[in-house]
Nucleic acid binder design. Structure first.
Lengths: 153, 153
DNA sequence: AAGAAATAGATTGCACACAATGGAATTCTG
DNA sequence: CAGAATTCCATTGTGTGCAATCTATTTCTT
């Protein structure tokens, strides 16, 4: 096998590695999210809101790389569950502002222990994990840049 | 911020990094898979079959970490597109054997260039990519082991 | 200020993922 | 060898992702 074809196979292997580990993480989180009645994407939206409350749908989408087709129904489910409020912005009626309810804020405490449980099985040191986050974010950024380029043409 | 809470945040960051890079890869592949009428999961199934033809649904599921709920409709779509055949195994009628059609085999050539295009934007050396595949596979394996343990109890 | 362009969300349609369940075939066990 | 347990696949229902399209609102241009 030539070096070139090995590299080609590696790209496929890398993509599949991310694809499958992402699902494995999702399953690992589900075990702890199910009792809270949350899915992983819903949990990530709450993580964003716990960090900074009162964001527009677009601001949430920018942070999570998701569009309104995904977020609108997801946010409605979070609203129905009583975790958030959705209100039209008075100054710009195009925007919908998302804010936590008291119940949504209270959920933070219960969710706080989840990454501990999941993190335990990874067997990574602090520095290893940090380096991995950096490297993966770098790849995501390059893929996004490349997609933006080819969308322009 | 204590080291402990940093580590907790890191687990969430790591999970989200994989979650988002996985989608970014999927979008990058989609650009090249769309002309072939394939989705990324369908492409991965074909990759498996190009490597080894005539597998059961379960064997494909074991390699890809997917169950019949996902694979059955996906395989039916690949069958309707003319890429594969689905036939009950004569020796064990519980099993459905998946085999490539001539068209499915022919598709391999057209798909061969895809990882080249995607791999170019990653900016990874051969060794970096290989190490990353190994490390991510290790994490996936640990998550699976942990899930298997907690399922037993 | 009027029309064009851009922006924010919502909606629709399709394709995963996956838990839960069901049915048919096979294997295990006493 | 009969019943129980297991295995394999299919089905159902829920919740994403995302492209494509639509509406309403705002901003830009002339």
């Amino acid at each position: 096998m030539t070096k070139k074809s090995e590299t080609l196979a590696l790209t496929n292997q890398l993509c599949f590695a991310f694809y499958s580990v992402s699902h494995a993480f999702s399953r690992a989180y589900r075990q702890f999210l199910d009792p809270l009645g949350l899915t992983y994407p819903q949990y990530v939206v709450l993580l964003v809101l716990w960090e900074q409350d009162d964001l527009t749908v677009k601001e949430i989408g920018d942070r999570l790389f998701l569009d309104s087709g995904t977020l609108t129904p997801l946010l409605k489910r979070l609203e129905n569950a009583g975790h958030i409020r959705r209100t039209r912005d008075k100054r710009d009626e195009r925007q919908v502002r998302i804010s936590l309810t008291e119940a949504g804020r209270a959920l933070r405490e219960k969710a706080e222990e989840i990454p501990t449980h999941v993190g335990c099985v990874l067997g990574l040191s602090f520095d290893e994990a940090r380096a991995l986050v950096q490297e993966v974010a770098k790849l995501r950024s390059r893929l996004h840049d490349s997609a933006a380029l080819s969308a322009k043409s």
